[in-house]
Amino acid sequence: MITDILAVFWKEWKELYQQRTSRGGLMTWLIMVALVGVFIPLQSGAAWVNTPVLALVWIWPPLLGVVWIVADSFAGERERHTLETLLASRLPDQAILLAKLLIAVLYGWSMEVAALIAGTITVNLAHPAPTGLLIYPLGWLATILAVSLAAIVFICSIGALVSLRSATVRSAYQKLSLTMLAVILLPNLALGMVSPGWRQALLGRVATTPVETTLWVVIAVLVVLDVGIILLANQRFQRSRLILD
């Protein structure tokens, strides 16, 4: 199974490298890293490292970066007529699905990791502190990395599910963008639907809980959702359905 996953991963990486100048390619990766790892830290100064919420807020570009990759995962193969040949090979279903998820997750998460490293270097070069090296507090660094990983896996697993059922990459991209919008708006809508008393109590609880604790609750919820969606995608991965779609 590992060899099969690596085989598909190798192909996905090669394709990603070859399309380095197009959307979802290496150029996008570099632009996003330059934005989050150089431009924003230059503007923020030492606060970029000392106030880690800033770095946390800027985890969204990697999330956007994976959308095109994951939309392309199955819909792209279908659109370019390579899916049927791939399905006619000896590859197990799970190997195809997991390898495609893995490449998208690594693409997005490596963007976040690279941006954090670049941010530290940028801040220390542009705004050196007399006290020594400026680095993120370790607890916060772990939290940012965990939140971004859980969120990227969430986007990728939803994306794979959408891409499995889409005829073209564009259609998958549109559906995935709408799904992301719904996910972002859903908590606000849900909050608007509960009684004012409940809402106040809930917001009060969040305000009094340390931010890091709240974030770990969010991570736990995302991990549960990630597992559920990946299992669902695995169930939806049926060769006959993929071919007839």
Binding site: T3, D4, L6, A7, V8, W10, K11, K14, E15, Q18, Q19, R80, H81, T82, E84, T85, L86, A88, S89, R90, L91
Partner: peptide, 26 residues
């Protein structure tokens, strides 16, 4: 199998296309 469409990865080289399917079959 060579099915209705060639099923080749056009963004890969010929060598890489064959190498990929070789990897699939271990």
């Amino acid at each position: 199998a060579l099915l209705e469409h060639t099923g080749l990865y056009e963004r890969l080289t010929a060598e890489d296309n064959l190498d990929f399917y070789g990897r699939i079959w271990h």
